Computed example of a mutant assay.
Amino acid sequence: MTMLDIHVAALNSKIASYHEFLSRYSKIKKVVYGFVEGNDPCFYRGFIDHAIPADWEIELWAAGNKNRVYQIHKDIDWRRFPKKRVCFFVDRDLSDLIPEKLVRDINIYVTDGYSIENDIANKGTCKRILTEVCGFENAKHEDLDQLCNLFEQELENFFQAMIPVMAWIVFWRRSGKRAGLNDILMRDLFSLDKGCLKTEINPKGKANTGIYIHEQCNVAYCSTVDVSIIETQLKNGNIYRKYTRGKYVFWFLIEFCLSVKKIMHVTLSASNGMTIVGNRARIPDSLLQFLNNTFCRQIEIMGAR
């Protein structure tokens, strides 16, 4: 297959990021390449920048949903491209609970939890946001420790409060029901006051959370369906922490910091928080190992030539 044939195949597949990759790929430039599930690759860009040598660059493309990422991986002619130089980053989602088979390969990274946000929403990241963004840079260490301990306490409360919501989402996925999970708005279900989580009893005037999430996602609600077995499954081994949707967890992280802020140096919200938080989170161990075995190893190989 010629390079022209490859470009035509990319255009026919209607995956623009794949076509752009083919047009930008260089055998000689010090660049590694990647495709990320979703619409915002900034988290991964920051982690990769810290892992590769300073004279190397990373080019990432937001490839859309998981199936599109896998399709690009399938379409690439791996006889022409080193696998360790072109990597793919996908969310685990609820694949272990559905169950759903994930595509495995040396250059495909699957998050430990639901998504990369689950690894980022932790005590260490919270402390950095408070000190570097929210005006707590001169706070006493004891006060910061108290705030971060409160964060962990309220995050656990948030996780437990989300068990019924995630149980319904698991049920929908197992039943093949399509639901726009972005339409479940955390601000309708919770609020935070000075770091303390408040749960709405009647979200948006609905009788309960179950009815609210069904109406938000345009899924018919059936009162006879019992998801308590799924709730028990989520509670077993505390896996609810791992399988609470990452965007919901990230919302909590941002809202907690906003609720205890003093002086804001920049505007912080769930929408722009990806960019602000990405450089302040510690890279997950599994991701660091993956990068060492792919990008970093390929860079070593190319440097030895």
Rank of each mutant, 00 (worst) to 15 (best):
G303Y: 03
R174A: 05
V36L: 03
K177V: 14
L144Y: 02
D5H: 11
S175I: 07
E156Q: 07
A207M: 11
H141G: 15
W56F: 02
D112C: 15
A54Q: 13
C217D: 03
W61V: 12
H214G: 06
F21R: 01
L192F: 06
G46L: 10
D91I: 07
F35M: 05
K74N: 15
F43C: 07
I263K: 15
I301M: 04
F295I: 13
N107F: 00
A304M: 11
I230R: 08
L197F: 03
L155H: 02
K101W: 09
M302F: 13
K198A: 12
N272K: 04
C196L: 14
A9W: 01
D188E: 04
L189V: 07
Y114H: 10
N272A: 04
K74C: 13
G210Y: 09
I58M: 10
I213E: 05
R280Q: 01
F250R: 04
F81L: 05
R128Q: 12
C257W: 02
I201M: 09
H19L: 15
R173A: 10
K262G: 10
F256D: 01
W251H: 03
T294I: 08
V32D: 02
N122T: 10
K204T: 14
N279R: 13
V170N: 10
K29C: 12
I276G: 01
L94A: 09
E154Q: 10
M1K: 13
M162T: 02
K84S: 14
G195Q: 01
L287C: 03
V8P: 06
R280L: 11
L197R: 05
L130K: 02
Q216I: 12
M264I: 11
E231Y: 06
V8A: 08
I52E: 11
C222V: 13
D5V: 06
V8W: 07
F190M: 03
M1D: 10
F47M: 09
L147H: 06
V36H: 02
L268V: 00
